[in-house]
């Protein structure tokens, strides 16, 4: 069959861009959504900023790197927003009963995964950057002073958020909107294990191997190494990249597997609880 006269042929980036555009239209149409995205990271940053001020007079550990708690909260929120950016963007299609329309368009499932991660990046930046900027006048602390290591931490923690978001999206696709609460809750299981606010060595010895199986643990340890010792730990960076590549691949495979189950069971039209 020759090229379709009305179409420009198969361009996966245009199709992924279409879904990103759909979300930008959505954000543009609703200021409450934009405020909601930035609200929680900002509130978190303010709370931890005051806690930091308090501990500066009571903790010699924190005096060495005053920004450690603020940087930790901003990176944790990057992971949380990365997860929400994937899972909630997928949920938006289910809430609007739009999923079947998308899947009968020539959009391949892996292109949907790509689009969700792109949307997640934008939503995360909208959420976290204002909080990071606000920390400068409020607490005289700029996370951007970390320089290039910040980019490495941000990317790694965001990718872990994507993995969690894809697994949640797969579960919701399989079990329906009754499981949508996981989009907000599932990620918190990783908070105590990731050493967000304390070193992994604080955890009981039997739990530490579990923590070291998470890319996020390497990110937060790496962040503390930069802030306290002024050293960028390439070994920690390599571990987080390797584990992220593994988990992102597994999460994408899980989502695509759930998509196939949904096609067997007729779940793509029957979207509900």
């Amino acid at each position: 069959m020759t090229a379709h006269p009305a179409t420009a042929g198969g361009n996966p980036f245009r199709r992924m861009g279409a879904l990103v555009l759909r979300n930008l239209y959505l954000v543009r149409s609703s200021w409450p959504r934009v405020i909601e995205m930035a609200y929680w990271p900002t509130v978190q940053m303010i709370i931890w900023g005051f806690i930091t001020k308090f501990f500066l007079t009571h903790s010699s550990w924190l005096v060495e790197a005053a920004g450690a708690l603020i940087a930790a909260v901003l990176l944790w929120d990057t992971m949380f927003r990365g997860n929400l950016g994937v899972a909630v963007s997928f949920l938006e299609e289910m809430w609007s009963r739009n999923l079947a329309q998308i899947f009968v368009a020539p959009l391949r499932p892996w292109e949907l995964v790509g689009a969700l991660t792109g949307i997640s990046l934008i939503r995360t930046l909208i959420g976290v950057v204002p909080a990071a900027v606000l920390a400068i006048p409020l607490y005289d602390y700029s996370i951007f002073a970390m320089g290039l290591p910040l980019l490495a931490f941000f990317t790694n923690i965001l990718v872990m958020g994507w993995s969690v978001g894809l697994v949640v999206a797969g579960i919701v696709l399989r079990f329906g909107l009754g499981a949508e609460g996981l989009a907000w809750l599932a990620i918190f299981a990783f908070a105590p294990l990731s050493g967000v606010y304390y070193p992994i060595a604080t955890l009981p010895p039997w739990l530490q191997p579990v923590a070291w199986a998470l890319p996020s643990s390497y990110v937060f340890e790496g962040m503390r190494a930069v802030l306290f010792d002024g050293v960028f730990r390439w070994d920690l960076f390599a571990w987080s990249v390797g584990l992220n590549a593994l988990y992102l691949g597994l999460a994408a495979a899980f989502f695509l597997g759930m998509f196939r189950v949904a096609r067997h069971r007729g779940l793509l039209l029957d979207v509900g609880e």
């Binding site: 379709h4 009305a6 179409t7 042929g9 198969g10 279409a18 239209y25």
Partner: peptide
């Protein structure tokens, strides 16, 4: 218009 634009791009319409 926004909806049709999104689907126009999804289908690769010129």
């Amino acid at each position: 218009r926004e909806n049709l634009t999104v689907y126009g791009h999804l289908y690769g319409v010129r």
